[in-house]
Nucleic acid binder design. Sequence first.
DNA 1: ATCAATTAAATTGTACACAATTAAATTGAC
DNA 2: GTCAATTTAATTGTGTACAATTTAATTGAT
Lengths: 153, 153
Amino acid sequence: MSETRETPELWLHNQICFAVHSTAHAFTAAYKPHLDPLNLTYPQYLVMLLLWEKDDQSVSELGKPLFLDSGTLTPLLKRLQATGYINRTRDPKDERVMRITLTDAGKALKQKAVCIPHNMLETMGMSVEQVMALGTDVRKLGQALRSDAGARS
Amino acid sequence: MSETRETPELWLHNQICFAVHSTAHAFTAAYKPHLDPLNLTYPQYLVMLLLWEKDDQSVSELGKPLFLDSGTLTPLLKRLQATGYINRTRDPKDERVMRITLTDAGKALKQKAVCIPHNMLETMGMSVEQVMALGTDVRKLGQALRSDAGARS
DNA sequence: ATCAATTAAATTGTACACAATTAAATTGAC
DNA sequence: GTCAATTTAATTGTGTACAATTTAATTGAT
């Protein structure tokens, strides 16, 4: 009856891209109850993770591991500044560079965030070993997708 | 030196959520060269997949498998209509319902899309079996995240 | 020393994504 | 049959993403 029978490769539920895509959105939704009390969105949380690892980074230093450019980061960082978690100041050595530093409130927030990974692990219902193994595979897939994109010279 | 040494659970590159999040974006970018010639964005492609599986669906029928509501779908469907791939008509039986049907151009597009999954498989550099196994695990994770969100009554 | 390339952010425009509200049509209890 | 609840989309407002352009600062070849 359906013309689909002949093209199972086009079934939505067979597509790993959609599995990854929808699971990413499910993560954002699952983080929400944990991040709302901290006044953070999920992408803002990712930036805070980087700043908690290493304070005082430029916009492009933050963007490289996140695969984001200033078009996304500039407005996001302005919101983090408005919330009071970061400072944005021009580097006196090179006025092109915007240096992002944590405020005291931004540093203090880390203590409220440390429990989030543990809580999310419970939500996922997986062991640490399972999560690490799956993470390795997913990262490998992401790297393959990105390296191939760069491969067309 | 870094205060991070004590909190590896907060390292960005340890977070499976970020692995999934960034791989989802890598997918969107990797699809772009395949979808641009078809005048489709990646989310629009997902809607077309559903319509190729089963023509004539309502907005909410399309939204359920995609985990999207009318707030996202209405403008997206208007763009697909503007491109000429779908029709949007009110159901005469129930004027609340918007019925989405493929135009001839929308139906014809399927033939141009059938090769995309195969091409993407090459980009991923994985076997069909590997992709299916990883897809199963990722879908399971997505389901766990969504079911737990609904678990707070 | 000067000026053409380069670099870093910011800006602009398009397109999701989602919460919350609104509007219109339908259903159901009475 | 009437009107309150429900259902379906659409709308509004905020927040990412990303391509393309712009601006300002720096570098480097001459």
